[in-house]
């Protein structure tokens, strides 16, 4: 096996399959997705592949997207709710290059939305699939580090540990101190990690019109929530689940009841709050809405941007 004589100059991107993964890998992932849909909230082990981006940077979501995407799909990728964060840009470019698909920043135009840490504010529809990048899929992992133990807990539906943890929070802090990756129970059976989205987004998972798929590449797990499925955030009668509320609307578009990013303006304590969902904010501004910061300058929002990359 004298590799030094092997010709490697011909190895270029052209030799990769559509959407990078080989067909056998896609089949394996597709089988796992179907099982995940059939058993909502259950983490299906799958033989995750090494991807050309680092573990922890969306390899699970990328593998799920690569397994479901077709030539006619329109892909949107967000990170922290934004289309223009560097890792979202990088993953979008990866699919534009390896699958030649149309990409978009406009939520309603997308057929597949891959996300890290947010669910878009615009309600999703039946024709869309939401793919989450998941770092640690096991909701019990920080209570019990051993896979052999947590697997048993799920098998026996033994979730007492999770309730104890949440209750200890209340005893110590007066609050459930979990603000993101807030555990949910799916269809009354499996306790599931919603990925590190702020708990603000948890209610959007409940009876969603859209199929939600979750991929954890490093931890080799895929799970799913079918549409119209019960997704209930864990809580207590005397401490019901509640989402974050912001005191002020978005400074750019004036939106209320949305998740906001805090932006530090100076070193004198100046702060402003703007939509985390960049497309939502831009389209509201394009529609003439404006927040306190923009004053009387409506229509500053950039047009949503749908394009096909040159192959």
């Amino acid at each position: 096996m004298n590799a030094l004589t092997q010709d490697t100059s011909s190895q270029n991107l052209a030799s990769y399959n559509f959407a990078y993964l080989d067909e056998q890998t896609k089949r394996m992932i597709r089988r796992a997705i179907l099982k995940g849909i059939a058993i909502p909230g259950y983490q299906v082990p799958f033989a995750s592949r090494e991807m050309p981006m680092p573990y922890g940077w969306g390899t699970g979501g990328v593998q799920v997207t690569a397994a479901i995407i077709g030539r006619d799909d329109v892909l949107k990728v967000i990170d922290q709710g934004a289309d223009d964060t560097t890792n979202a840009v990088s993953i979008r470019a990866f699919f534009a290059k390896t699958a030649g698909v149309v990409t978009t920043t406009a939520t309603p135009d997308a057929t597949i939305i891959q996300t890290r840490h947010r669910i878009p504010e615009t309600p999703l529809t039946e024709g869309q699939v939401l793919v989450y990048q998941v770092p640690i899929p096991e909701p019990l992992r920080f209570l019990e580090p051993r896979e052999t133990e947590t697997r048993k807990m799920h098998a026996l539906e033994e979730y007492g540990l999770m309730h104890v943890k949440l209750y200890e929070d209340i005893a110590r802090n007066g609050h459930i101190a979990t603000t993101y990756a807030y555990p949910v129970k799916v269809e009354g059976r499996y306790v599931m990690d919603p990925s590190p989205t702020p708990k603000f987004d948890n209610p959007k998972m409940h009876r969603s019109e859209t199929l939600q798929l979750f991929g954890a590449g490093r931890e080799k797990r895929i799970y799913a929530i079918p549409p119209h499925t019960e997704v209930v955030s864990l809580d207590f009668e005397d401490h019901p689940f509640e989402i974050q509320h912001f005191d002020q609307p978005c400074a750019m578009c004036g939106a209320e009841q949305v998740y906001l990013d805090e932006v530090v303006l100076d070193d004198k304590g100046g702060r402003m709050f703007v939509c985390s969902d960049t497309h939502y904010c831009e389209s509201r501004r394009a529609d003439g809405h404006c927040g306190a910061l923009l004053g009387d300058e409506p229509g500053l929002g950039a047009e949503a941007n749908t394009r096909k990359e040159a192959m």
Binding site: W57, D79, Q80, G81, H117, Y180, P198, K199, Y259
Partner: peptide, 10 residues
Amino acid sequence: LPHYVDFQAE
């Protein structure tokens, strides 16, 4: 990677 959405929640 950016984690500002989670950090905001915290």
